[in-house]
Design a protein around this nucleic acid. Structure first.
Lengths: 144, 144
DNA sequence: TATAGAACCTGTAGCCACTACAGGGTCAAG
DNA sequence: CTTGACCCTGTAGTGGCTACAGGTTCTATA
């Protein structure tokens, strides 16, 4: 294995990014990471640009972007075919979806606390939560 | 097919609950719904108690409970082995997890809007979002 | 009674984004 | 020249469904 300075194996890439080795190979298979050059023994060898790209992907994931969205974004980047307004629109669209999810979860939490507050909290086999969930007439507790 | 009053096929159950036929069969396979009696031709026949149980499951799902949690809850119900305080605790624990998720998503939305606000919004191939995501030095934008 | 078509059956594969093996090959150090 | 860390490919599993394919059963009409 001839190891040039600034090159590293998949293990090195994994360490530097905190991304699982299996995940890196998975990204390669799905095409979001490029096929890296190989050593004579078949080992993948990575450079700085791979590192940056993988970090980009991870950050997007942390921001909740789906892989397909990241694919699209990277496609634009690879082709240098994006504009700032495009990327901004995509980001804000995503933010709006996140906002919607927050709204839904807030309603959900309220409902949960609401039905829990009806409990006596006693150690008896009678519980308004179970009753509310089992009784087809008592729908009130679950209307958000 | 001998159809007693108050009995219905899987299609009827699907209609009454809004749950997909495939999903009902899936619930049966995983054990969260019981094996219903069959007609001579092999058709599943359901009654009111199946309906209630399926509605219970759906409501729990809408409340964000995982199938395993629902399994556990129904196990207690089936054995009449639950107490009100147990169920309350489970519900509140779940509510707390939902709250945590809301916190995470709020931070996420803030980050997204923050990086989007740096955009010029112009139709040029230069974008601070892409720059921030690609540049290994500029980590600031993503720290929540 | 024949037949069309709706509804049902089982079993398998796909979705997403990974993760976890099994069963092997390659490398550096002692 | 052996040990053991690292790497390789390929497959299967996760959760909670959904979507077929290819077949059977029922119901309504001619």
């Amino acid at each position: 294995m001839v190891k040039t300075a600034g090159e590293f194996t998949i293990g090195g890439l994994s360490e530097r990014t905190g991304v699982n080795i299996e995940t890196i190979r998975y990204y390669e298979k799905t095409g979001v990471m490029p096929n890296p050059p190989r050593t004579s023994g078949g080992y993948r060898m990575y450079r700085k640009d791979h590192l940056n790209r993988l970090r980009f992907i991870r950050r997007c994931r942390q921001l909740g972007f789906a892989m397909a969205e990241i694919q699209a974004l990277l496609g634009l980047v690879d082709a240098s075919a994006y504009t700032c307004s495009e990327v901004q629109a995509l980001t804000l669209e995503h933010a709006t979806m996140v906002k919607q999810k927050i709204r839904d979860l807030k309603r959900l939490e309220k409902t949960l606390r609401g039905i829990a507050s009806q409990c006596t909290g006693e150690k008896v086999p009678e519980c308004p939560i179970i009753d509310a969930l089992l009784d087809p007439k008592d729908q009130l507790a679950l209307q958000a």
